[in-house]
Design a protein around this nucleic acid. Structure first.
Lengths: 213, 213
DNA sequence: TGTACATCAGTGAACGCGCGTTCACTGATGTAC
DNA sequence: TGTACATCAGTGAACGCGCGTTCACTGATGTAC
């Protein structure tokens, strides 16, 4: 039978998750380096000191958020690079990215913001996870017949290009969402980003097909 | 004859520049959204209240830093896309980017960090300047014979791809520099980034050459 | 099943500190005559 | 050139406030017998 957590453990995890959620919400309008411990506990409704039962500092909480945010990204990336013919793969990838931004906007914003942000351990955690994703994408790409004759280094180079391009596209959808809240052109902006991202990925795919050719 | 500033104006500009320089230094280890006004004036050696003679807030100072940082980038981008044969153009572009990161590391870090940072007016200022750069790159690309048959939209799409790629490359050199301070493999890391960036740009150029082909 | 003790997530008071902002000021620089 | 007044970049004291961290605590949950 499955192991059930004790009441105490379950409640602790619930509070921890509430802290993570509250922090993610507060990070919509600021960076991790200015996020205050008291701010987070106030939003959850617990005493400031309760924070220390879960995290050493807001930096530490930030690292936990990286795991959570990139955990949600993981299955999305898997789907993105799953086999399909090239034209369809790109269309599907852009749709998946748009859907991911709709579903986890705060996660996407957090990663984009803190990837180059002011907190070193968080930057490093993001860099490590993205490197893992690139390895995974590389493994998928290697399965394509188009990858015949490619060496490992070039495949990894291409994988990084795709991963970066996914993040850029996610950021563009994010910006479009934010603009939509004030300018009422939500659908148009979104369509424009879809077109742009699709063409950029197509151009990269064309480059791939003619590489060394 | 050239107009000389009065002593008062000259001194004021000097203090203003000192505030900008100090802020840029302090932003190596944090984000703009956590930068304090008193921190900046303390670093310069003036009273906190002097800050208000130059900027309304640290946000306002941030917008001024965008102008300064992307002002220094402007001539670099011009050189980067200046005519040359394709192979040489890419080699030269990567060298120029590496040199720019060496010369203005704090500017590069600032733009990478605040492009998706927590301060909306600063994000917008960066977005506007990058859009201007993309327009400029597009104008240069349009001059190439390879651009025959390309419509405006696709040229701008390609220009954005190049601009984003330049920023990614700059970030990679930045990371390599930071890693070098602790791991003593400075030259190797740098060479690795040069190789990676060169190949990625080459792949994009191959895609360009065979686009619609 | 019941009892006695241990654990530990969350509390609440207290601390010293640096923050952003206000205000009236000073004294060097600028200007009018 | 000299004088009298205006301007204004930078000062320094003062303010109320929220911060991160410490500490001894409480009381529900867990465990041993």
């Amino acid at each position: 039978m499955s192991h059930t957590l004790g009441i105490r453990q379950a409640q602790k995890q619930k509070t921890r998750q509430a802290l993570l959620d509250a922090a993610l919400g507060l990070l919509e309008e600021q960076s991790l380096s200015s996020l205050g411990l008291r701010e987070v506990t106030r939003a959850v409704g617990v005493a400031p000191t309760a924070f220390y039962r879960h995290f050493r500092s807001t930096e530490d909480l930030g690292v936990a958020l990286v795991e959570e945010a990139l955990g949600s990204l993981h299955p999305m990336i898997r789907q993105t690079v799953a086999p399909a013919d090239s034209g369809q793969r790109i269309t599907r990838a852009v749709e998946l990215i748009a859907h991911h931004v709709d579903t986890y906007p705060a996660h996407v914003r957090f990663i984009a913001r803190e990837r180059h942000g002011g907190v070193q351990p968080v930057r490093q955690a993001i860099r490590e996870q993205l490197a893992r994703f690139a390895e995974e994408v590389k493994a998928e790409l290697a399965k394509d017949p188009e990858s015949d004759g490619w060496n490992d280094e070039d495949l990894l180079m291409l994988a990084h290009l795709y991963v970066d391009q996914m993040l850029i596209t996610a950021s563009l959808f994010m910006e479009a969402m934010e603009a939509a809240e004030t300018t009422e052109f939500s659908g148009e902006e979104r369509e424009r980003v879809t077109q742009l991202a699709t063409r950029q990925m197509r151009l990269i795919s064309v480059g791939r097909r003619h590489w060394l050719g």
